[in-house]
Nucleic acid binder design. Sequence first.
DNA 1: CTTAGCGTACTAGAAGCGTGTGACACTCCG
DNA 2: CGGAGTGTCACACGCTTCTAGTACGCTAAG
Lengths: 130, 130
Amino acid sequence: MWFNIHPESPIPIFEQIVSQVIFNIAAGGLAAGDLIPSVRDLGRELTVHPNTVAKAFGELERLGVVTARRGRGMEVTPDAAKICHLQRRERVGKRIREALREAVSSGLSAEEIRRLVEEETGRSNGRRRE
Amino acid sequence: MWFNIHPESPIPIFEQIVSQVIFNIAAGGLAAGDLIPSVRDLGRELTVHPNTVAKAFGELERLGVVTARRGRGMEVTPDAAKICHLQRRERVGKRIREALREAVSSGLSAEEIRRLVEEETGRSNGRRRE
DNA sequence: CTTAGCGTACTAGAAGCGTGTGACACTCCG
DNA sequence: CGGAGTGTCACACGCTTCTAGTACGCTAAG
């Protein structure tokens, strides 16, 4: 389904789960009222301990994305879409910001940095204003 | 001087030291034959343990950027400039690549991603801070 | 030779992560 | 009611990584 976990990544597994759920809701894959997979199901599917999944779900609940329905599952909240849109932008933006700040502080020329960025995104459309 | 360490960062301190030395040499701040600050001096200045600095120096030696001169210090190698230029591009490129890949997989539109990038690089158009 | 500074090696502590186990309260359905 | 499924909690264990503490051997200068 919609999970792509990298156990060898320096980013903790539970953190990866959090992000992917957020991204999935933001992209419209899950709507308010839906139940996300249970800790045991998801744990089995990702070959991860249910406790690890539960840790991710706890974080999602803290963010207000889901609410625990004891005995039923984790339900996507009405505000989830809005929250996830913000979260997605914030998380992605932070990563990009850090990478670009490091690039600038490394002494690389703006030209070089722009080239590196273009290598990844350049295909999608032509040219930005300058 | 030329170090800017963030102890709270998820990136280990020794790794930050490695990068900053590489960036500094790549930018021409240190030339072949120069001695970089000693583990104790640098440790005192950054308020980290000399061993942490030594770990960073060991990595730099493994990369061929410096050679240990027992009893004297760590000396910048003749090839350091070339190696550091490559390393800088590789390290910066990797960070940018990862950030942009995550951005794409999050479902953000190419438009949005471009906007986020512009927010960081837009100001330095045609001109680099230095 | 003595001394001070250098890098190095070994060891120990601390923190984070993932796993494992067991138990509990709740809800749904037969 | 009873069983199966759900989230939750507490505890412990092993593992890895990072950092700190300490001591040692080397080199250059006096």
